[in-house]
């Protein structure tokens, strides 16, 4: 329920500098908000509006168009079961029904302990591994009901924490880059980003810095009852 942290503001500025026009950083910044808080908070959206020099309404209007941006608290693990054609043909709906029973919630809802949100979704581009699902946008399939149970057990016990970070975290690899095309970015934003990068670590032309693959959002703990 908060604005972006100082560290995330630095990341936001560096992201804005990647684009010729600041507004292009809209979706990346909203992802940053969701990574920090687990969903897209009002405060977060207002902060994004400030950073992009837009009105909050422009940010809400865009955020609400995209399905990955959740406007309400979401489980630590978002389970998206595909029921589109290839999955439907080999048991996608049955897999969804099984998970509804197993988790005790219907599609669209979150378990009482805040661990799982279950959703029915459209094709997740894993049709050759049908029936399949995503957990926080990582693919699992093909799955029998038993495989799905094992997956839920492993997630609940924290055994997959390395493969599946908490909801909100998508790409964990940070590419720290500079603009090779001088003038491509608005000068002010570009400078701000370089300052921000300089503060975080010594930049060099062409410097790119992988971060630990295992890094998960440091600011969030599972919130029981969310």
């Amino acid at each position: 329920m908060a604005r972006l942290t100082k560290e995330n503001v630095d990341r936001a500025r560096a992201t804005i500098a990647l684009y010729p026009q600041m507004r292009s950083a809209m979706i990346p910044l909203l992802h940053l908000v969701q990574e920090q808080d687990g969903y897209v908070t009002r405060d977060g959206m207002e902060h994004v509006a400030e950073l992009l020099e837009l009105t909050p309404a422009e940010v809400y209007g865009t955020a609400s168009f995209y399905e990955m941006f959740k406007m309400h608290p979401t489980g630590r693990y978002l389970v998206n079961v595909c029921t589109n054609i290839s999955c439907m043909l080999v048991g996608g709906y049955e897999l969804l029904a099984h998970l509804e029973e197993r988790l005790g919630v219907s599609a669209g809802a979150t378990t009482a302990d805040g661990m799982f949100t279950l959703e029915e979704v459209e094709c997740i581009a894993a049709c050759t591994d049908a029936p399949c699902l995503l957990v926080n946008y990582r693919t699992f399939g093909p799955l029998t009901n038993r495989d799905a149970d094992t997956l839920i057990d492993d997630l609940a016990a924290g055994r997959l924490a390395e493969t599946v970070p908490v909801h909100g975290v998508t790409n964990r690899v940070k590419t720290r880059r500079f603009s090779a095309t001088p003038g491509a970015a608005p000068a002010a934003a570009g400078t701000a980003a370089l300052d921000a990068e300089g503060a975080a670590s010594p930049p060099g032309p062409g410097a790119t810095e992988p971060q630990s693959k295992d890094e998960t959002s440091p600011t969030r703990k599972p919130e029981p009852g969310r």
Binding site: L18, P28, H31, Y66, E67, M68
Partner: peptide
Amino acid sequence: WSIDIVLHWGAGAY
């Protein structure tokens, strides 16, 4: 020759 590649990812909309 100089060129940048920006990795951008979406947020769910066919």
